[in-house]
Simulated assay, not measured.
Amino acid sequence: MTQRRVFGTVFALESAIAGFVFLVVLALLGYALLRRRATRGTPVTGQPERPVLEKYYVGVLTAFAVFLVAWTAWQNHNEHRPPRTAPVTVDVTGFQWCWKFSYPQSPVKRSVTGTCRGKDLPTLVVPAGRPVRLRLTAKDVIHSLWIPDLRYKMDAFPDHVNTFTLTLDHEGRWRGRCAEFCGERHYAMDFWIKAVPPDEYDRFLHGQPLAGAAA
């Protein structure tokens, strides 16, 4: 999936750069401490500044910062390219303490919800290979829809709609959670997201059950 690929690429590169900078700073600090001990007792040079060295230092830091900002912005642009085909729409409502998924394009006004107790978890059904626009809101307090394996997360606010588009390029089922503390049963506010073939999704919109499931 695009989101997971972009997140993995950005995280790996930024972690490598951060690790490199940390090791360089640690090495310079160790060198300075050892050199200080080796020259203990020698007169101080009296030179308060080293302008050339400081210019190199500032220049390198600036170059790293400009690269990271520009490269991250470019990756973010690639991640959020407009879909080539019109996305299907799913309305997502978080409430204490579960989820409701409504399908406004369904001729039978299909919706799925649950209690989030035990195995009674609602399933967000989406078509594989097609863009899906999720419209998130909350009924009571702030919640956050989070799919850890796919690297998707967005807050759901009362009286407000947040929107993002995802495309799952193959069939499968993944566990989702609420990532915003919302009360005593926050820990149990899980759901499933299931990508099914487009023809099965169309049958689901018309009220037919999923193959091998009761969603």
Rank of each mutant, 00 (worst) to 15 (best):
M1G: 10
T2D: 13
R4H: 13
R4Q: 10
R4K: 15
R5C: 01
T9H: 11
A12W: 15
F20T: 12
F20Q: 15
F22N: 09
V24Y: 09
V24L: 14
V24G: 05
L26S: 06
L26V: 08
G30S: 04
A32L: 12
L34Y: 07
R37D: 09
T39Q: 03
R40W: 13
G41K: 05
T42G: 05
T42L: 14
P43N: 00
V44C: 02
T45I: 00
G46E: 01
G46M: 01
P48A: 02
E49T: 12
R50E: 15
V52S: 10
V52K: 10
L53D: 07
E54H: 11
Q75C: 12
N76D: 08
H80Y: 11
H80L: 14
R81M: 14
R84A: 11
T85W: 06
T85H: 05
T85Y: 01
T85G: 05
V90W: 10
V90F: 05
D91H: 14
D91Y: 12
V92H: 09
K100V: 15
F101N: 02
S106V: 00
P107W: 05
K109C: 02
S111K: 08
S111D: 07
V112W: 00
T113L: 01
G114Q: 02
G114K: 09
T115W: 00
T115P: 00
C116W: 08
G118F: 04
L121M: 12
P122L: 05
P122F: 01
T123N: 13
L124P: 04
V126Y: 05
A128Y: 08
G129P: 06
P131W: 00
P131V: 07
P131I: 05
V132I: 10
V132E: 00
R133F: 13
L134D: 07
R135K: 13
L136Y: 06
D140M: 03
H143I: 03
S144I: 02
P148W: 04
R151I: 00
Y152A: 10
Y152F: 15
M154E: 11
F164D: 03
T165I: 09
T165S: 09
G172H: 03
R173E: 04
A179R: 11
A179C: 10
E180R: 09
E180K: 09
F181T: 10
C182K: 06
C182N: 15
G183W: 02
R185C: 11
R185T: 07
A188L: 14
A188S: 13
M189T: 10
D190Q: 10
I193D: 04
K194Y: 04
K194E: 12
K194C: 14
A195K: 06
P197M: 02
D199Y: 06
D199T: 09
E200V: 02
Y201D: 00
R203Y: 09
F204L: 02
L205Y: 03
H206V: 00
L210E: 05
A211P: 13
A215V: 14
